[in-house]
Amino acid sequence: MRILELHDLREFLSSPKKVVITNHINPDGDAMGSALGLQHYLEKSGHQVSVVIPNDPADFLKWLPGAESTVSADYHTAQAERLFSEAEVVFCLDYNAIGRAGELIAPMIESSEARKVLIDHHREPESWPDDMYSDIAKGSTCEMIYDLIEMWDGQADVGEAIATCLYVGIVTDSGSFRFPSTKPSTHKAAAFLLERGARPELIHERIYDVNTKSRMKLLGHLLDTMQFVEDRDIAILHLTKEVMNKVGYTKGDSEGFVNYGLSMKGMRMSVFFREDGDVCKCSFRSKGELDVNHFARKYFNGGGHLNAAGGLFHGNAEEAITAVREAIEKENI
């Protein structure tokens, strides 16, 4: 389903405005790429633009053009509040529910008198924004920003910085172009961004060739302790606080771990739990028509896409594994 309700937004932006762009908590490549890509585009039109993020991204995303100027709300809360209070328009990127902006930024969005614009590709978007561009058929918000620029300006203003940021989000959210959401339009967008200066070899190196010793040790433990729901072709992976502390876990070390379960021959679904304080962060991946968005929403306080979703479980990894096994039986997946 595609929702395009931008009303007179293009006309509204025809004169310089104070703009805030924000994304979801623990911003990934698509969240950071879309926010920074849109920032560079709007700045070319004379707007005063600030990117306010809920918390810092993983280190492998901090090289993106403009990343050094972002305002992290968990470190600079007062500055973030001031920017939201002064904003004339707020762009909310790569999330469908205001709670995904985090406990610091969500209230800032709600209290802001700015015009609020949601651009996102996740299912079942909430209805609070003034303007909305939602398209669940798209594989990334970065591709949607590309489409928006094309719609408004015919891509005339896309330079190397914009191309790099948007290419990063398209590559990471498409699983390097292997997920079902990858369409001919995805490759057309990527090809154009390469023409405008995105360097795939450099981007791949900075995104994927960044394994740390702690990540490799965690991966070894993860694979060694992998469990299976044998009669369902489902893999379950987990990391405990004890193991992460032992190897010196750093933010981003577990990025993409959920995909290892799904990479095994015959697997239909992969589940990954990572202990974080008193809760477990949950990731779900699937193949075909197995709907992990519905599964995550119903049982794990989350959601996302048909074949990729996230969630939250209140308890430790052992309890989460018991809960997911019970839910799998109940749903007869």
Score class of each variant (00 low, 15 high):
205 E>G: 00
133 Y>L: 14
285 R>W: 10
3 I>T: 14
110 E>H: 11
322 T>R: 15
103 E>C: 02
251 K>I: 00
274 R>E: 15
288 G>H: 08
3 I>E: 13
184 P>G: 11
232 R>E: 15
243 V>E: 15
209 D>E: 08
272 F>Q: 07
27 P>L: 05
226 M>Q: 12
42 L>G: 12
28 D>G: 09
230 E>I: 06
65 P>A: 08
247 V>M: 03
246 K>E: 09
260 Y>N: 02
25 I>L: 13
36 L>A: 08
225 T>V: 07
100 R>L: 11
70 T>I: 15
219 L>H: 06
11 E>N: 09
116 K>W: 01
315 G>L: 10
135 D>I: 11
234 I>V: 15
106 A>C: 04
7 H>V: 01
320 A>W: 02
209 D>A: 00
166 L>A: 08
287 K>N: 03
100 R>W: 06
143 E>F: 09
73 A>P: 07
139 G>S: 10
211 N>L: 03
84 F>W: 10
287 K>S: 08
47 H>R: 03
187 H>Q: 06
290 L>C: 06
17 K>E: 03
202 L>V: 12
4 L>A: 04
332 N>M: 06
291 D>I: 02
228 F>D: 09
142 C>V: 05
119 I>N: 04
190 A>Q: 10
292 V>P: 13
296 A>C: 04
181 S>N: 09
152 W>A: 01
277 G>V: 03
87 A>V: 02
172 T>W: 12
323 A>C: 12
26 N>L: 02
317 A>S: 14
263 S>I: 04
104 L>G: 05
61 L>W: 07
307 N>L: 09
252 G>P: 04
172 T>H: 13
214 S>N: 14
319 E>W: 10
135 D>S: 05
144 M>G: 01
144 M>A: 01
197 G>S: 06
216 M>K: 05
127 S>G: 03
82 R>G: 04
72 S>N: 10
134 S>D: 11
256 G>C: 06
269 M>I: 01
29 G>I: 13
157 D>G: 15
258 V>N: 13
211 N>T: 03
10 R>P: 06
192 F>K: 11
180 P>E: 00
9 L>F: 01
37 G>T: 11
65 P>I: 09
232 R>S: 09
50 S>Y: 03
259 N>A: 01
96 N>G: 06
182 T>N: 14
159 G>N: 15
121 H>G: 12
290 L>P: 08
224 D>R: 14
128 W>M: 12
44 K>G: 10
284 F>E: 04
172 T>P: 08
92 C>I: 15
307 N>Q: 14
206 R>E: 06
149 I>G: 08
255 E>Q: 13
269 M>P: 14
253 D>F: 04
264 M>W: 09
217 K>T: 11
264 M>V: 01
249 Y>N: 08
312 L>N: 10
105 I>V: 15
322 T>K: 15
196 R>A: 00
74 D>A: 11
